[in-house]
């Protein structure tokens, strides 16, 4: 997890489940093949119905035709982001697409845990409807140390909920590096 993440934001609504993040039909690409796994980026968020893709306008593609990396760096969403299946392919797909943080009103438990333990992206909770105040394409900066999100386009600043005890795992880069750092696993 970088101390500062700056880039364009992609906005989604409530209850974005893992089938919308990466539809089940795509769960067949090898994750340890650097070329093949680009498919997860290519199809990231391809299950989101068009009207909900890139709020408030909608009908905005997260990944452009024939590309596998997004022009957005941060996802802002409503409540219960990542609900549904336990597939780790969900945070991985967003990670491969180039997303470094998801700022959501709240997260579903398994997605949250997968994002942290795999070190795929930083999940910040807002506890309020931030997704209704930020627009897709806004330029934002996220200070992950202080948990502050600044919308540079609209000159607004938001204090996010503290990461708490999971911050150490995220800073270490995931559960394996954390367990090695704390001596639970041998180097």
């Amino acid at each position: 997890m970088e101390k500062n993440i700056t880039g364009k934001v992609f906005v989604l609504g409530n209850d974005i489940d893992t089938d919308q993040i990466i539809p089940a039909v795509h769960l067949v690409y090898k994750l340890d093949d650097p070329e093949e796994k680009k498919n997860y980026g290519k199809f990231a968020l391809s299950g989101v119905p068009p009207e909900g893709s890139g709020l408030p306008a909608g009908n905005i593609r997260f990944i452009k035709e024939a590309e596998w990396q997004s022009h957005y760096k941060i996802v802002v969403a409503g409540k219960n982001f990542g609900c549904g299946s336990s597939r780790e392919h969900a945070p991985i797909a967003l990670n491969i697409a180039g997303i470094e943080a998801v700022v959501a009103e709240s997260f579903a438990r398994i997605f949250y845990r997968n994002a942290i333990d795999g070190g795929f992206l930083a999940p910040f909770e807002t506890g309020k409807h931030l997704y209704q105040e930020i627009k897709t394409g806004d330029e934002v900066s996220l200070d992950t140390t202080k948990g502050i999100l600044t919308n540079n386009t609209r000159q607004t600043v938001y204090q996010l909920n503290p990461l708490g005890e999971i911050e150490e795992i995220l800073r270490a880069g995931g559960i394996f590096s954390y367990a090695r750092k704390t001596g639970m696993l041998k180097e």
Binding site: E88, P91, I110, R113, N114, D117, G174, I175, F176, L185
Partner: peptide, 14 residues
Amino acid sequence: TGIGNTDAAFILGT
């Protein structure tokens, strides 16, 4: 309860 691949791999080893 359900978990992801990383957690499952951690269990496989430990």
